[in-house]
């Protein structure tokens, strides 16, 4: 039923919004369609605007509300599909950035970090693939690129660019990524939790003591290697636990990873 409603609205759009005189191209094709689309609309835009302004002013209030409702609908039900986000300026398909009118979009909190970086929502990711995507976004969203635009859009750029940075930082760190994906599932890591698990704590105590007592680079390197191995093991353990929705186990893996990471930080300080 919703699908039908959307189709219906798509046929309405060119009529109602004078500015959107042609139907928005699908997101994936925007780059290809970009020059003809712009030239088409720039030739006809002012003409249509003037013509349609008078005709449709009467309906604009109702239409705007309808469009707003539609945006909500599409954001909720198709948030994985970037083509469903509508540009605030030209109403074309736009995800973070509108390729058609080159404008930065306001932040949509329903979009998560995985979507921003074009990833499937799962813990195991290719960490190396993130940087390219991150840089691509910054080439479009960085506040320096919009300094001649409206105050509104400059704010959008500041927010979007900061959010993309946060997404990149969070997802490229195994622990931060684990905490984040748990949060998306509604499981929060208690920042103030205190534990008294003697097995884990005596292990950590021993590791930290050995770091403290280490006198040569060789020993420190050996400890660091061991910690990295543990970090890798527990990261895999987390992935399994998360996948099978064993959140208690997942949380305890995060604890272990945090402890091993702290030990690595201490080693690095001494190296």
């Amino acid at each position: 039923m919703w699908r039908r409603k959307l189709q219906f609205s798509a046929s309405l759009l060119p009529l109602g919004g004078g500015a959107t005189s042609s139907p928005p191209p699908p997101f994936s094709n925007t780059i290809k369609n970009y020059p003809p689309f712009i030239s088409h609309s720039s030739t006809h835009n002012s003409f249509f605007n003037e013509l349609n302004q008078k005709r449709f002013d009467f309906f604009s209030w109702g239409f705007k509300n309808y469009r707003f409702q539609l945006n909500l609908l599409s954001a909720q039900s198709f948030c994985s599909d970037s083509g469903k986000f509508k540009c605030w300026k030209c109403n074309g398909a736009a995800f973070l950035f509108c390729e058609a009118c080159r404008s930065v979009q306001p932040i949509d909190q329903s979009v998560d970090y995985f979507q921003i970086l074009g990833l499937e929502k799962k813990y195991d990711i290719e960490e190396g693939s993130l940087e390219g995507k991150y840089k691509d976004w910054q080439k479009k969203l960085h506040p320096d690129l919009v300094h001649t635009k409206s105050q509104e859009e400059r704010e959008y750029a500041a927010e979007q660019s900061a959010r993309v940075t946060a997404a990149y930082r969070t997802l490229s760190d195994p622990i931060a990524r684990a905490i984040y994906i748990m949060k998306l599932e509604g499981v929060d890591v208690d920042e103030e939790e205190r534990i008294s698990d003697p097995e884990l704590l005596s292990e950590i105590m021993e590791i930290r003591e050995s770091v403290e007592e280490a006198r040569d680079t060789q020993t420190l390197n050996r400890i660091q290697e061991q910690m990295l191995r543990e970090l890798g093991n527990w990261s895999r353990f987390f992935a399994d636990a998360f996948q099978s929705r064993k959140y208690e186990k997942a949380l305890s893996s995060i604890q272990r990873m945090t402890y091993y990471k702290r030990a690595i930080e201490e080693v690095i300080k001494k190296l």
Binding site: D190, E192, R194, S196, D197, P198, L201, I254, T258, Y259
Partner: peptide
């Protein structure tokens, strides 16, 4: 023996 795992 106690610990605060979030801060390590």
């Amino acid at each position: 023996l106690v610990g605060a795992p979030a801060c390590g």
